[in-house]
Design a protein around this nucleic acid. Structure first.
Lengths: 162, 162
DNA sequence: GTTCAATATGTTATAGTGTAACAATTACAA
DNA sequence: TTGTAATTGTTACACTATAACATATTGAAC
């Protein structure tokens, strides 16, 4: 579960990050895909925080033989991570977040706190069911769904953030 | 209702567009907002089709005193239309669609047909309810939700599109 | 261990999406 | 009429993402 919800103040982020990385390695080994240095570097940047990060923001945090990597390097790594379920693209932000659940296929709801800018995902089968039913009612055959919610996480709401 | 679902082959698009424009005018009059020429031009381009259109695609269809309008002109008009509920931004496409329902506030599910590229919206209270409940379960206070589904509309699915 | 195909990288250039900033103008109500 | 808010005109730029193509690396088959 590590960081599928907004992290508490006290959460051990070092362990959280390490776990997620280990999960990723296990997952990729299982499907014979390779976590190359570029890919790992991007994943680690994503795992460093619980915020969504844009490709160029990621770029700026990677030291690539003394240079900053080219956009294509980042986008390739992101495509790989997303296609293997190790990261999600957040459409409403044009940004990316790490996902700790690569092992079980899921179509999570993404929650975006507009105060602390952290993101979290939540697996709610009822949402998927409601969407599938609505689609079926109109004859639409779904394929891929995006559910993103902006608002305040419990911590920021409790603090009285606007 | 006009075009809240995928239009049938036989639908009278001329009437559909005219109705939507009239609805928009009524709605804006009611809130004392102005449908200026630029705004109306953008709305009309959106109403011309049931596809989502990017800002630059819209730009190319507008004759603005013999020139093509600057991006800022289009984005201002789009911001206005979206904020008054006359258009939706489709996050997963970075594109916009006209919305015929400005009068009743709604958080629709957007369906995107990847074969015919048309888009439609569908109002399913059960989806909103499922999302609200999921959010509440985690203490998140929602504010704005995005629900987009890619797949095949009934017509394309029936035709056996991949 | 060589060869082959598939996968991944390096690099440059460019396409596509969206805003900032500020001056000028217009609409409308006091 | 005069002031204020909303809207427009314009230039420039920032951010997001992909195309294209050459090179190199990997791993499996022989």
């Amino acid at each position: 579960m590590s960081h599928s919800l907004f992290p508490s103040k006290s959460h051990d982020h070092d362990a959280c990050r390490k776990d997620a990385l280990a999960n990723a390695q296990r997952h990729l080994a299982a499907c014979k895909a390779r976590l190359t240095p570029d890919r790992q570097a991007v994943l680690e940047v994503l795992l460093d925080s619980h915020r969504a990060q844009g490709a160029y923001e990621i770029m700026d945090q990677i030291d690539w033989r003394g240079r900053r990597p080219a956009p294509a390097v980042i986008y390739r790594a992101l495509d790989f991570l997303v296609s293997h379920g190790l990261a999600h693209k957040i459409e409403s932000l044009n940004a990316f977040m790490a996902c700790p659940h690569a092992d079980h296929a899921h179509k999570p709801m993404i929650m975006i706190c507009r105060d602390c800018t952290q993101v979290a995902e939540f697996e709610a089968p009822s949402i998927g069911r409601a969407i599938s039913k609505a689609a079926k009612d109109t004859g639409f055959v779904p394929d891929q769904t995006t559910v993103e919610v902006t608002g305040l996480c419990s911590t920021c709401a409790a603090r009285g953030a606007a």
